[in-house]
Design a protein around this nucleic acid. Structure first.
Length: 884
RNA sequence: GCCGAAGUGGCGGAACUGGCAGACGCGCCGGAUUCAAAAUCCGGUGGGCGCGAGUCUGUGUGGGUUCGAAUCCCACCUUCGGCACCA
């Protein structure tokens, strides 16, 4: 009699297996392999030092995919690294005094790595990358130099976003509703000279290549689409006779050009000054501009705020009609979009309409809805913004909007008065940061030579360690004399280094490429290795990065492709946007005091139960509500599996060894009482595997041909209860496989495994004569199916059943079609669409047989009650519906 | 304002192309085991009516298509997300 513990001793055994996996290097990806490659990746974390539930969720999802694909025979790359540059390290140093950001970061990495190990995550740690390490940022800087060389990086003075709390500028993407994305402080505008990356050069591709991303959530593509904001239109030049200038405007509605009754310049428009001098109302204009500039950015750009403006008194000519129209300056036109000037068409733009009414400007309707000649904008007191048919538009009258759009654009082009153009909302990416803990921007400033890139062979430009981090609005590096003072690489004269560092989003824009060749000291990545792995097969992470990281990473991949580093157009073939982990309906946060610490959970319930719960509680893309009760349920499930195997261990092992010469050791082992220590397990494990080999016993997965060895089970020979269990097993294999492969619905996969477990209990409960041959197969396959989700308990039970180490290197089970077939089916019988009865029929029944049998049911006859059956719908294998 | 997603028991969630609504889990109720409890095992559990076999009703609301709708169509309500004087 084997005395096996009632419950899985996760505290001891999880740790044991984690060590063993690590020793053996189970999770390493091969650079070259006969197997097909599969790249599973989760967004790497900022090393805060503590894992939170959100991490547990992403990494559990990724780990299931990686383990599943390994079992399916792929050579899986599943790496992990650290997005290690960034503000928290620097802030920690400032707040706690003497902890250097480097030490802080590396200590945190160590701590988090340990926590990840305790979750049983199967990473190839030999490819670990740390963005704050010179080995890595060497290549981040190299990327920057390539971009500089290819006119994709440039320096310019611009009105930029400044976060007063983070003491640095921010990219547009990092400003949310006028506030800093990181710290929520209100963002200010500052005129500064900064470094930009020309993401706008790739705007079209970033948008158009969404069509390659059919395995991305629609909403993420939508968000990016909104962010890029492409609009097709026409650039039109309006001459200003008084000064000889031209005002260039962008419009998406050239078909309304005859309705342009005035023009508007943004107060910051370069022509404003000139017009002001020309105008007799210079002072008034000056006051107005002053007034607008004092408006808060938020207020200024809100559609609700009042539109105010002033007539400059200067006139422009409509290039098509020749009409003279007034030029206004108004707050509702922004310098940051288009040309900072518009042609205003009050009849067909609500904003212009409101403004025109307020300042008593002519409203001229030039479009009417097709087939409605009585439509009157003025009578309706509302702009008509739809397309339609042109009126009051000279030779274009009578054309529809689309035709007029083309014709007018062509005529403008011919006349040299304008041209078709595409405008984007997307702005270039500002990457300068006035912070210490980031990759230095590798350029120097020479009085004679100007901006000079640091030669590639001098990379990396290393961050100096000694630095004073108390700072006020300038990079701390500025005060590090040794760093700043350098020689010009071109003329050898005195020069100073750039002291700003790069946005950390630059670091994370290419790390997935580096994993493919993490130790390369000569190159950022080798083409061959990159191409063998890229694109990432599945990328998992939070949707909060939809337009930050994900857009930047796509941009960098396209740049890398154009530099010849990879042939991949896109970094991530499939993006799984995982939802947040909530507690009491809200995001976990210290301020709300609703944080559940994964470390406590791991200690209390173990890694397997934690992983299972977080995968079971909701489908991955939805938000998940944390529940302490819920995780107890999953721990119960782990123990149910444990117990049912443990309780039948002896009998099942006997079946597995039957027919083979009973080896002494093996017999001993089978009779062994509970195994306690790790070393014993180790020794036993080896002895066991050898014994198994000697005696010629093969457990599935060990078979020579690499396929699952079939148990000698014939469905027909099974007693009815056994047949049901056998069918359930194969149904479960099918369900779990489909759920993982096609839908990544881990919740339903786990519930299928729960059902199978329930079925096993039921079988053991009801059957007088248990078929241990069958049970052996069910146990083996259930453990294989459960292994990606709960790697520890399955490894332990696999081992106890005499399986070869490791379960994670076995083949994924196949299901057999024949096993799924049922001899009898339950058919629903409906009368007028309502379920009235059920019947059992043989699986081969024809439609006619089904119909006949349904009509024979007493109960059905009662419902039909002598009425005529008008129509019969038969759905094979499902139902019969009688319409009376 | 524009665009998008989602509304199913007390709760988390199932239901694949229209075919038994509520799988699985939590919670709750009952039973077994126990001196007792915990743990475990077995059974029940959308709502109404009925002692009962039953029966009516039910997937945000209102309509429609269909033999049949959680699923498809139209309108509306609510929640969440993105964009927003973007010309």
């Amino acid at each position: 009699m084997i005395a096996v513990a009632e419950e899985f001793n996760f505290a001891e055994r999880e740790k044991y297996w984690q060590q063993r996996w690590q020793q053996v290097g189970l999770d390493r990806a091969e650079d070259e392999s006969e197997k097909e490659n599969y790249y599973a990746l989760e967004m790497f974390p900022y090393p805060s030092g503590r894992l939170h539930m959100g991490h547990v969720r992403v990494y559990s999802i990724g780990d299931v995919m990686a383990r599943y694909k390994r079992m399916q025979g792929y050579n899986v790359l599943h790496p992990m690294g650290w997005d290690a540059f960034g503000l928290p390290a620097e802030n920690a140093a400032r707040e706690h005094g003497n902890i250097h950001p480097k030490k802080w970061t590396w200590d945190n990495i160590k701590a988090m790595k340990k926590q990840m190990r305790s979750l049983g995550l199967s990473y190839d740690w030999e490819r670990e990358v740390t963005t704050a390490s010179p080995d890595y940022y060497n290549w981040t800087q190299w990327f920057f130099l390539q971009m500089l060389k290819n006119d994709l990086a440039y320096r310019k003075e611009a009105d930029v976003n400044w976060c007063p709390s983070c003491d640095t500028v921010l990219a547009n993407e990092q400003v949310v509703d006028g506030a800093c994305e990181r710290c929520d402080s209100e963002v200010e505008k500052r005129q500064l000279e900064q470094w930009f990356l020309k993401i706008t050069d790739y705007a079209d591709q970033l948008l158009d290549d969404h069509k390659l991303l059919d395995k991305w959530p629609e909403r993420v593509k939508m968000m990016q689409k909104n962010w890029i904001g492409r609009s097709e239109g026409t650039m039109i030049r309006f001459p200003v006779p008084a000064t000889g200038d031209e005002i260039e405007v962008f419009t998406t509605r050239p078909d309304t050009v005859f309705g342009a009754t005035y023009m508007v310049l943004a107060p910051e428009h370069p022509l404003v000054e000139e017009f002001m001098e020309l105008s007799r109302r210079e002072e008034e204009l000056q006051d107005f501009i002053e007034q607008v500039s004092q408006q808060e950015e938020q207020e200024r750009t809100s559609p609700e705020s009042e539109k105010i403006g002033i007539d400059t008194g200067v006139k422009a000519l409509n290039p098509l009609s020749g009409e003279e129209i007034p030029i206004f300056i108004a707050n509702y036109v922004l310098m940051g979009y288009g040309t900072g000037a518009i042609m205003a068409v009050p009849a067909h733009d609500q904003r212009d309409y409101d403004f025109a009414v307020k300042y008593d400007i002519q409203v001229r309707q030039v479009i009417e809805p097709e087939g409605d000649e009585d439509w009157d904008v003025k009578a309706r007191d509302e702009a008509y913004e739809e397309y339609g048919v042109l009126i009051n538009s000279d030779k274009y009258s009578g054309m529809d909007s689309a035709a007029a759009f083309d014709k007018i654009a062509r005529d403008l082009e011919e006349g040299g008065l304008g041209q078709r153009e595409t405008n984007f909302r997307l702005r270039d990416w500002l990457i300068s940061r006035q912070r210490y803990w980031g990759a230095p921007i590798p350029v120097v400033y020479c009085e004679d030579c100007g901006i000079v890139p640091v030669p590639e062979e001098e990379l990396p430009v290393e961050l100096p360690e000694k630095v004073d981090l108390t700072h006020g609005g300038e990079s701390p590096l500025k005060k590090v004399e040794d760093f700043v003072r350098t020689d010009c690489p071109e003329c050898g004269g005195q020069a100073r280094r750039e002291t700003d560092t790069m946005d950390t989003f630059v670091d994370s824009s290419w790390y997935f490429l580096r994993y493919t060749d993490a130790d390369n000291e000569e190159q950022a990545v080798t083409r061959e290795k990159a191409d063998s792995w890229m694109p990432v097969d599945i990328y998992i992470g939070g949707v909060e990065h939809a337009i930050l990281h994900l857009l930047y990473a796509r941009f960098f991949t396209k740049v890398a492709r154009d530099l010849g580093l990879t042939e991949a157009d896109e970094p991530f073939d499939h993006y799984l946007a995982q939802g947040m982990v909530l507690k009491d309906g809200a995001k976990m946060s210290k301020s709300k005091g609703n944080v559940v610490d994964p470390l406590n959970t791991l200690e209390k319930y173990g890694a397997d139960a934690t992983r299972l719960f977080i995968l079971f509680a909701a489908p991955p893309e939805k938000d998940l509500e944390w529940s302490d009760r819920g995780i107890e349920g999953l721990q119960r499930f782990v123990n149910r599996v444990w117990r049912v195997v443990a309780d039948n261990l002896e009998e099942v092992r006997e079946v597995l060894t039957a027919g083979a010469a009973q080896d002494e050791k093996q017999a001993d082992f089978a009779a062994e009482s509970e195994i306690e220590t790790e070393s014993e397990i180790e020794a036993e494990s080896q002895a066991e595997n050898e014994a198994a080999k000697e005696s010629g016993i093969e457990i599935e997965g060990e078979a020579d041909d690499g396929t699952n060895e079939k148990f000698e089970i014939e469905a027909e020979e099974l007693a009815s209860g056994g047949r049901e269990l056998y069918r359930k097993l194969h149904e479960t294999i099918q369900r779990v496989t489909v759920d993982l492969e096609e839908r990544q619905n881990f919740n339903t996969a786990i519930s299928a495994l729960m059902e199978l477990t329930n079925e096993i209990y039921q079988y053991l409960d009801e059957e007088d004569k248990v078929n241990y041959q069958l049970l052996a197969e069910v146990f083996h396959k259930e453990l294989l199916l459960l292994a990606p989700f709960a790697p520890h308990v399955t490894e332990e039970l696999w081992y106890r059943l005499g399986g070869e180490f490791s379960i994670h290197q076995q083949d994924w089970p196949d299901y057999e079609e024949e096993a799924l077939e049922k001899e009898e089916l339950e058919i629903v019988i409906q009368v007028n669409g309502k379920v009235r009865d059920r019947m059992m029929i043989s699986a081969e029944s024809s439609r006619e047989e089904m119909e006949d049998k349904a009509l024979q049911q007493d109960k059905i006859q009662e419902y039909i009650d002598g009425r005529e059956v008008k129509k019969v719908i038969v759905v094979p294998e499902k139902l019969v519906n009688l319409v009376v």
